[in-house]
Lab assay of single mutants.
Amino acid sequence: LAALHAEGPLAGLPVTRSDARVLIFNEWEERKKSEPWLRLDMSDKAIFRRYPHLR
């Protein structure tokens, strides 16, 4: 499970980098069924690119 911001401008976004990794992994797991070539990237760089508020 990932903790998400409940309200405000960040509502629905992950609270920590660990939470972001959970979301990225879950999405990758779903997408790899139809796109088996996808690589999993959970590096800090990938997290910041996707969720800049975690910098």
Rank of each mutant, 00 (worst) to 15 (best):
A6T: 13
K45D: 13
A20V: 01
R39N: 09
E29L: 14
W28K: 01
L54D: 00
K45C: 11
Y51N: 01
L10K: 06
R50Y: 08
D44L: 14
R50P: 01
G12S: 14
P36Q: 08
G12K: 07
P9M: 09
W28M: 02
P9W: 06
A3S: 12
H5A: 05
D41E: 04
A20N: 00
L13G: 03
L23G: 01
S18K: 13
D44R: 08
N26Y: 13
M42E: 05
G8I: 05
P36D: 05
Y51Q: 00
I24V: 07
W28S: 01
R50N: 04
L40E: 01
T16I: 01
R50D: 03
A6C: 11
L1V: 13
H5E: 03
V15I: 14
E27Y: 06
L38Q: 05
R49V: 09
L4E: 07
L10P: 04
G8N: 05
E35F: 09
P52S: 02
A11D: 07
L40Q: 01
L13I: 04
A46M: 08
L38N: 07
R50L: 09
S18F: 12
A2K: 06
R49G: 13
L10S: 07
L10H: 11
R31K: 13
L40F: 04
L54S: 00
R39L: 11
F48Q: 06
W37K: 05
D19F: 05
K33N: 12
L10T: 05
D41S: 05
L23Q: 05
L38S: 11
M42Q: 07
E30W: 07
H53L: 01
N26C: 02
R49Y: 13
I47F: 01
L1F: 13
K32V: 15
E35S: 08
L23Y: 04
G12I: 04
S43Q: 02
W28L: 04
F25W: 10
R17W: 12
R17Y: 14
E30Q: 15
P36V: 05
R39V: 15
G8Q: 04
L23A: 06
D41V: 05
D41Q: 05
A6H: 09
L38I: 10
P9V: 10
L4G: 05
A2H: 08
R21E: 13
A20T: 01
F25V: 06
D41L: 05
G12C: 09
E7Q: 15
L4A: 06
A3M: 12
R21T: 04
K45S: 13
H53A: 01
L40C: 08
P36M: 03
P14L: 01
R17E: 12
L38W: 08
S43W: 01
L13K: 09
L23W: 03
K32T: 07
Y51D: 00
E30D: 11
I24C: 07
A11E: 10
K45H: 13
L13Y: 07
D44V: 08
H5R: 02
E29Q: 15
T16G: 07
N26I: 13
L4H: 05
A20D: 01
R39Q: 15
V22C: 09
R50Q: 09
P14S: 01
P36I: 05
H53I: 01
S34P: 02
Y51W: 15
S34M: 15
I24K: 00
L1D: 10
K33S: 10
E35I: 09
S43G: 08
I24M: 12
T16H: 07
Y51M: 00
G12Q: 03
P36Y: 06
L13S: 04
A2P: 12
K45P: 09
A20Y: 01
A2L: 10
L40T: 02
K33L: 13
G8H: 05
E35D: 09
S34V: 10
K33H: 13
K33P: 08
R55M: 12
S43F: 02
L4F: 07
P9I: 08
F25D: 01
A46I: 05
W28H: 04
D19L: 03
A46N: 12
K33D: 08
N26R: 13
W37A: 08
P52K: 04
K33E: 09
D44Y: 08
E27C: 08
H53K: 00
L10A: 05
R55A: 13
K33G: 07
D44G: 03
P36T: 06
W28Q: 02
E29W: 15
R17L: 15
L4S: 05
R17N: 10
A46P: 01
D41F: 02
D19T: 02
I47R: 00
F25I: 06
I47C: 00
P52T: 02
H53R: 05
D41I: 07
A6R: 13
M42L: 13
E30Y: 09
G12H: 04
K33R: 10
P14N: 00
L38D: 04
S18R: 15
E27L: 03
R21C: 10
E29A: 10
E27I: 05
H5F: 12
E35V: 03
T16K: 08
T16D: 10
S34H: 12
D19P: 02
E29C: 11
D19W: 04
R21K: 14
P9Y: 11
S34Q: 14
A3F: 13
R50A: 11
A6Q: 12
L13M: 11
V15F: 06
L13R: 02
K32S: 14
R17Q: 02
R39S: 09
Y51A: 00
P9Q: 08
G12N: 08
Y51V: 00
T16Q: 07
P14I: 01
R31D: 04
A46E: 13
L13C: 08
A3K: 12
A6E: 14
R31G: 08
L23M: 10
I47V: 15
L38H: 08
L40Y: 03
A2W: 05
L54G: 00
L13F: 09
L38M: 06
P52W: 02
N26L: 14
K32R: 12
R55N: 15
D44Q: 04
P14A: 01
A11Y: 09
A2S: 08
W28E: 01
L4I: 09
L54E: 00
R39G: 05
P14C: 00
P9R: 06
S34C: 11
R17V: 12
K32C: 10
W37N: 12
S43L: 03
E27W: 11
P9F: 10
E35Q: 10
Y51K: 00
H53P: 00
P9D: 11
R39P: 14
P9T: 09
S18Y: 13
W37E: 14
R17K: 15
P36C: 07
H5T: 06
A11I: 10
L1C: 12
S43M: 02
K33T: 11
W37G: 12
P52V: 03
R50F: 11
Y51C: 01
W37I: 06
A20P: 00
S34D: 15
R39T: 12
A3D: 11
Y51S: 00
L10M: 11
R55E: 09
L4D: 06
K45L: 13
D44C: 09
H5W: 11
